[in-house]
């Protein structure tokens, strides 16, 4: 099987993801931020395809870029942001944010450097479900080994639906 994961494609997707992620947190208009977030999510779906995870890529596009972002855009339309756009968009915490982010990045870089040997480049060999019947394998895992977490997740979604309806009601 010829690899999909060409070097050019990886760097193209990485630059697209990071630039649009920066656009998400810097745009003044939340609609523009939501559109930039959609670009980030789609490039992450491309990453999942490169990593031979087609089912997760499809779920990412359908559920994230399709479902959750529509929810975000609905709420952006519902809350009237006309005067909010003209206000100052950042609080006074940029120094704290910068320090926290740099500390986090330094920690991650240290871990990556220290654990270099534990991230081997050889891919998992004794497993055939990664390329051919990925969706079937995920379904078997979800309904077999991960049965209880699956049911707990469905319960969580039910609670979230009830919670969202209660939150958005006029009179509680």
């Amino acid at each position: 099987m010829t690899p999909v994961a060409t070097t050019f494609f990886f760097y193209f997707l990485a630059i697209m993801a990071i630039v649009s992620a920066i656009a998400v947190i810097t745009r003044r208009n939340p609609v523009h931020a939501a559109l930039a977030l959609i670009v980030t999510l789609l490039s992450l779906a491309g990453f999942y395809l490169m990593l031979y995870a087609p089912f997760v890529a499809a779920v990412q596009i359908v559920l994230y870029a399709g479902g959750i972002m529509v929810l975000f855009l609905f709420v952006i339309m519902l809350v009237n942001l006309e005067q909010n756009i003209r206000e100052y968009q950042f609080n006074k915490q940029w120094l704290v944010g910068l320090i926290a982010s740099i500390a986090l990045g330094a920690l991650l870089l240290f871990v990556f450097r220290a654990g270099r040997g534990t991230f081997p480049s050889v891919f998992y060999q004794g497993y055939r479900g990664l390329e051919g019947d990925n969706t079937q394998q995920i379904g078997l895992a979800l309904y077999g080994q991960y049965m209880l977490p699956f049911e707990i997740a469905s319960l969580l979604l039910l609670v979230a639906i009830v919670g969202a309806v209660v939150m958005a009601k006029k009179r509680i």
């Binding site: 947190i25 100052y88 950042f90 915490q93 704290v96 910068l98 982010s101 986090l104």
Partner: peptide
Amino acid sequence: IGTIGVLTRRN
């Protein structure tokens, strides 16, 4: 990038 966004944005 997400951390910076959570800590610095007002919206």
